[in-house]
Every structure is written in structure tokens, then in C-alpha cells.
Write a protein that binds this DNA or RNA. Structure first.
Lengths: 343, 343
DNA sequence: TCCAAAAGTTTACGCGAGTAAAATTTTAGT
DNA sequence: ACTAAAATTTTACTCGCGTAAACTTTTGGA
């Protein structure tokens, strides 16, 4: 095999005994050529392993077969997991996903969008940074490219939004905690970087009111995306200064909770619902590590599969439909309560 | 701004009052044109925000400005962290990094290499899957593209290998553990997926012999990359069946340790070096979460900065040097012991 | 001020493929 | 076996840019 080096489609057409336009057609859609032709081409393909030049193929196309996937932070297992899921589905749908992480930096997010434009992607899935996202830039981008937003919603932008229903998350944890013990106080960052935080905060206030309890907050300092460390420092601070208003703590998200649990352990506070426990702790997200915390973390889980599946599906629709922007839809998935040892 | 839509370099050259070849030169290297010319082009750039067609630019180039980064698993915070670091350095060096995760699947790893070839990357940084990597495929790839291997070495492949010195890792933890208490037993997978595991195992045997101790192993079942769960199950099994031969456990890596600590907690085994503790646990990698385990994990840290920095540097040299493949170098970085509460 | 060097302009061709149109061959149905 | 339909071949043009060659203009130093 490989007696001769194939430089382009011309040469490959020659060795396969088929004309170049037909070969081109084959690569565009193998089923569009006669079976006998397909056979010849595939035989030659075995022998020479030729593949069309990626750049030449895409130069004239208005749209390519790539799909951009942008998340705030690839080092966050939550996003890594969802990116992985989406990546796989893209490939199954015949597209080539390209991953980008904006590392929490709005400028980088804009740069990624600019670069993405050059790739002429068929579509883009983006979990925006949220509050700090450059709305104008994203808006302009969404006009040009079929875009599905996920995880964090930015009002009115994109063809579709797929996310989790923050109200459902908080509803389930608060309901459970109130039923099984003291109503929880809410442990969160004073100035959260992630956009879901505020929605959870409001849902907490609502739900507590509904159940006839006074909402109580433990708001901690900290900037950026290092949530575990922020949660740990905040936890140490809250414990040392006896700030915690009750024996049940509901963290805004699992990463914060991971840090908080670490602080509890360090301070000798036994967490759990059993006898001899000083504190109950619960949270939201079902972070991949939440089952390995000590104790394992009771949390409200995202429906990872539905979110990523629906995102792709919505993107495919946006790509296919010619009249984009006509209607914008939103889908929210409810949480699933995962009861573990921490509460 | 943006009175007229610029479709190509021809049109952009027109509105900027400069000839197309000169504009082309500018985009190749802004400093290669006269200052006054640069001024005109940049003025037009402000007004029209034109950027050359990515595909047309790269079609004729033998090499592009992209650098491929391939890791076994983007959902593993260790690799995510290193990928992030490398990504940043690539951008600083004027290259466009593209991330790929092979998800622990050898077939996917090969497919990624095949796709990468089409991108005509200037170079590639890859942390191979290891044992299961398709050696022939990687070898062929390395012949065509400047490649630096990192994290896991595959004998003789690539222009350079940058990794951590597994011996140093184990040396430090074992030395410390022996000095401060009972000699450790070694907790590991029977059939580890990651290639560094065997080196650490051998280093453990060596070091124990050197210190005059008998090596003792706790080998657990499990397949794949879900190390935390494997460590947890293995831990539960070892504890329930009283397999642990001593009170000091050295885990092959942090992810395994995270699971093991979780098992200890669940079984009520107090971990740490203080009074009242049943077990000491230490490990290797300084995983981003190891400071948040309960108790926080004593571990041997990778020199993330040096590994990623050196990888890029080596790749740049490989890219620049015309005579590739002449010599293959390896660099190993020693570990840094991070003492925390678990041992 | 003059002149050589440096920079820019014109012109023209190449890259590797997509694709349209017309001519030709193959296929399938009767 | 004949014919209409389908598939393929031929030919030729396009896309957006890199780049080489020959020529013209600008620049800076003596």
C-alpha cells in the first residue's frame, strides 16, 4: 500500500479511475454515487489513505462542518463533563467539535468568538460567562452564526437556551432540608462570578417564604472562579466567628460546598444528619467529586444528558432552519435530588 | 464604521489605499512594512474590522500557526490544569492552540492524530494514553509533525519528552513517611490505565529496599479512568476485609487517594498523623482537589509550570530546527513534597 | 541634491477543491 | 433490445490568498 504519494484530489481521482468531480461528490456524500463507483473509490482509499485538504474544502464553503463549543472554564469538572458529553454527540451527528475555554476572562471570550467566526462554524454552543459577558459582542456573533446558549442564560441572545431550572434545584434541597430538620441558611459568595448564583439566591428566598421561614444568609468574600478555596476560607471565617445562624447550611453550588466541608473537617465540625453531627450541609450541581467528599454531599443534580442532548438537538434545528432569529425558545430541566451522607 | 462590507483582501486593500501584496505582507508580519503604510492599514482595520480568510490563508502554507494539544482526558483536573497552562503559553508565543481529549480511547487518539494531520499544525503536544496507545500510528505521526510528548513517555517517540520524575515522587513520599512513622504500603490498581503507575510501583520497591523495608502492596480491581470510584471501592474492600498491612498508605496517585479517603471516612477510620488517628495516607500528583480532601492530602507535587513551560520551549525548538529526529531528549522534573494533614 | 537601497505596486500564476454546463456513458424498465 | 433517466466525464471557471518578478516610488545618508 502507498506506492505513490497522493498530493491532491486530481491524483487520487487518477489512481482510483474516477473523474475528480465524481470523487468530490463522493466525499461530500458517499451515497450520492453509484455503488460500483463507490467501490472503486473506497478500494483506492484503502490503498492510499488520501483525505481532501481541509483548508481547500472549507475555503469556498459558506459553512463548515465544525461546531464551536465554548465554556467558561475547562478546568471545572462540571463544564469538562458537559463539554465531553456535547463533544461526543457532535461527532455522532457528523460534525467536528472544537473546544474553547474562556478561563473566566470576558476579553478572552470575545477573542474566542472572533476566532470562531473565521472558522465559519455550522453552529456554536456556548455557556457564557454571564454577568461579565460582552453582550454586544455576543449579540453580533449570534446574528451571524446559529448559536445555542446553555447553562447560563443571557436574556434574548442566541436561538435557544438550554439550562437547568435553578428554582427546581433550590426547591428540592430546601424542601428536603426543612422536612428533615432545621431550615437551612444559604451559603454563597457576596459577588458571585457565575450567573446562576443570583437565581438560586432568589429561589431560596421564595421557597423559604413559601414554607414560612425567614431566609438567612452567610455571604462570603472572594473573587474569581476558585470556588473551593473561596468556600474553604469563607467556611473557616464563618466557623471561627460563629456566624452560622443555624445547624443546616445550603451552599449555592457544590464547589463552594467542597471547600466548606473541608473547613468543617479542619475545625472538627462533624457534618451529617446522624447523631453527634454538628451540621448538615447540602448543595447544588452534583459535581463529579461530590460523591467523594467527606461526608459525601447531598445535592441537586443536573440532568447532564438532557441538557447536552437538547442543546445539540436545538442547535441542529437552528442550523437547518433558514429563518433563524424568528423565535427564541428556552428549555429548563428540573433537578434531581441526590441524597447522600451530608444531610 | 463599517459603511461597506469587506469580502476579501482585495477589497480591503482598496479601502486602505494599499496594494494587496503589501497588505498580505502586513498580515504576515506587521513590522515588515513601512510605518506609514502600517498606519494606513491599521486605520482601515479600525473602520472595517477585516480579517483574512482563515482557510485561504492556510491552504497554501505548508505549516499553519496552530498547535495541537492532546491529553487523555480533559475531564481530569490534572490534565485540564496542564492543558490550560500550555494553552496560555501557546497563545503568548503567537500560536493558536487546539485542544483534544482522547477520553481514554486508543481509537479516538488515533482519529485525533489523523484529523490533526489535516490541520497542518506547526507542532503538537501530546500526553499519550500510554500502554494502549497505538505505537505505529503515533510513530508515523511524529515523523510528519514536530511532536513533544509530555506526562507519559513512549520510548523513542517524539522529538522530546517532558515529564515528571516518578522516582523523585516516590522517593520523597516514602522517605518522609518512613522518617515520620511506619513504612507505607502501596495502594494501587492491579491493572492501571495510566503509564506512570508502573514506574511509581518500581520506584516504591526500590526505595523501600534502600531503606531496609519490605514492600507491601494493596492491589485493587477496576478498569478505566474513573480512579476516584475505583479507589473508593478498593478502599472499602480493603478496610472491610482488613487487608491493609500497616497504618500508613501511599496511594499511586491523588485521584485514587481521593476515593480511598472517602472510603476511610465512610468506615469511620480517622486519617492523619495526630493522636487518635488510625491511618496515615499520602499520594502523588498534587491534584487540584487534594488540598480540599478531608483531611487535606499530603502529596508529591508536579512542577506544573516547569513541565508546561519546558514542553512549549522544546516544541518551539523542534519547530525551528530543520533537522528533526536527529536527537531525542528527555527531561524529568523532580517532585516537591506538599505536607498536609493526612500524613 | 543625488543616488542606492528599501519599500510598494502591477501583473500574473498557483494552490486544492467546489461546482455549473454540456457531452457522454451506464443503468434500469418495458 | 430499445429508450428514457440517471450517473459520470469533460471542460472550465471560481474562491481568497501567497508569492514571484519586474517595475516604480519613497526613503535616508553622504
Amino acid at each position: 500500500m502507498g506506492e505513490r504519494k497522493i498530493r491532491n484530489m486530481e491524483e487520487f481521482a487518477e489512481v482510483s479511475g474516477i473523474s475528480r468531480p465524481t470523487v468530490s461528490k463522493y466525499f461530500h456524500d458517499p451515497s450520492s454515487v453509484r455503488k460500483s463507483t463507490r467501490g472503486k473509490i473506497e478500494a483506492a482509499l484503502e490503498e492510499y489513505a488520501y483525505r481532501p485538504n481541509f483548508y481547500a474544502v472549507n475555503q469556498n464553503r459558506k459553512l463548515t462542518k465544525t461546531i464551536g463549543v465554548v465554556v467558561p472554564n475547562l478546568a471545572d469538572p462540571f463544564f469538562a463533563e458537559i463539554a465531553r458529553n456535547i463533544e461526543r454527540r457532535c461527532m455522532e451527528a457528523g460534525y467536528a467539535p472544537t473546544l474553547f475555554g474562556s478561563h473566566g476572562e470576558p476579553e478572552l471570550e470575545v477573542e474566542i468568538l472572533d476566532n470562531l467566526r473565521l472558522l465559519k462554524p455550522a453552529g456554536v454552543l456556548i455557556a457564557p460567562l454571564g454577568r461579565v459577558t460582552d453582550r454586544k459582542a455576543l449579540e453580533a456573533f449570534c446574528r451571524d452564526v446559529p448559536t445555542v446558549l446553555f447553562d447560563s442564560n443571557i436574556e434574548g441572545l442566541g436561538d435557544f437556551f438550554v439550562g437547568s431550572d435553578n428554582y427546581s434545584f433550590v426547591d428540592q434541597t430546601v424542601t428536603y432540608l426543612c422536612r428533615s430538620g432545621q431550615p437551612p441558611c444559604f451559603f454563597e459568595m457576596k459577588n458571585p462570578a457565575n450567573p446562576n448564583a443570583n437565581k438560586r439566591r432568589l429561589a431560596y428566598i421564595d421557597k423559604m417564604a413559601e414554607l414560612g421561614h425567614e431566609p438567612q444568609f452567610v455571604q462570603i468574600e472572594g473573587e474569581g472562579w476558585g470556588f473551593e478555596e473561596i468556600g474553604r476560607q469563607g467556611g473557616l471565617w464563618a466557623i471561627e466567628n460563629r456566624i452560622l445562624p443555624c445547624d443546616t447550611v445550603l451552599c449555592s453550588n457544590d464547589r463552594l460546598a467542597i471547600g466548606f466541608l473541608s473547613a468543617c473537617y479542619e475545625k472538627g465540625l462533624r457534618v451529617g444528619s446522624g447523631a453527634g453531627c454538628a451540621l448538615r450541609v447540602a448543595s447544588h450541581d452534583d459535581h463529579p467529586y461530590s460523591r467523594f467528599t467527606c461526608p459525601s454531599l447531598t445535592t441537586a443534580a443536573h440532568d447532564y444528558d438532557s441538557v447536552s442532548g437538547q442543546s445539540i438537538e436545538a442547535l441542529m434545528r437552528a442550523i437547518d432552519s433558514e429563518a433563524r432569529g424568528a423565535s427564541r425558545e428556552e428549555v429548563l430541566y428540573p433537578a434531581k435530588l441526590i441524597m447522600r451522607a451530608s444531610a
